[in-house]
């Protein structure tokens, strides 16, 4: 039908002209756009890598500080010294405390032979 085609063509000609967009509508649309627009991400600043610990720093951290480590070292040295030198004064104290029995006579790990013998 030519009449229909003519009418559609006239409507198309009208539609081809940009439809005026009310300022209020455009403002709402642009406000939406600003609200949901992704924000540009700043370049991430990488945290500096932790400095590599030296052996003594690692040991100090492990034992809770340089003071504690120094104390442990002192005690260890003192123990080695006393064990190696065995000063007479210290030996007499040990004998006085332990009596006549030598420490090596104590049986801290008895064998089970005595238990087996009871059967």
């Amino acid at each position: 039908m030519n009449n229909l085609d003519d009418l559609l063509a006239q409507q198309a000609a009208i539609a081809a002209q940009p439809m005026p967009v009310p300022d209020a509508l455009m403002a709402r649309i642009l406000a939406d756009a600003a609200r949901v627009q992704p924000r540009p991400q700043p370049f991430a600043v990488r945290a500096p890598a932790p400095a590599k610990l030296t052996f003594w720093q690692a040991m100090s951290d492990m034992f809770g500080g340089a003071g504690v480590l120094a104390g442990l070292a002192t005690v260890a040295c003192a123990g080695i010294y006393l064990g190696a030198v065995q000063p007479a004064a210290l030996t007499s104290v040990t004998l006085a405390l332990a009596g006549s029995s030598a420490v090596d006579q104590l049986d801290f790990m008895p064998s089970i032979d005595s238990l087996l013998a009871e059967e």
Binding site: M19, P20, L25, L30, A33
Partner: peptide, 14 residues
Amino acid sequence: ARDLAHRIVPRILG
């Protein structure tokens, strides 16, 4: 957003 809206909105509105 403004440029794109001016290109798209009149057509969709119409």
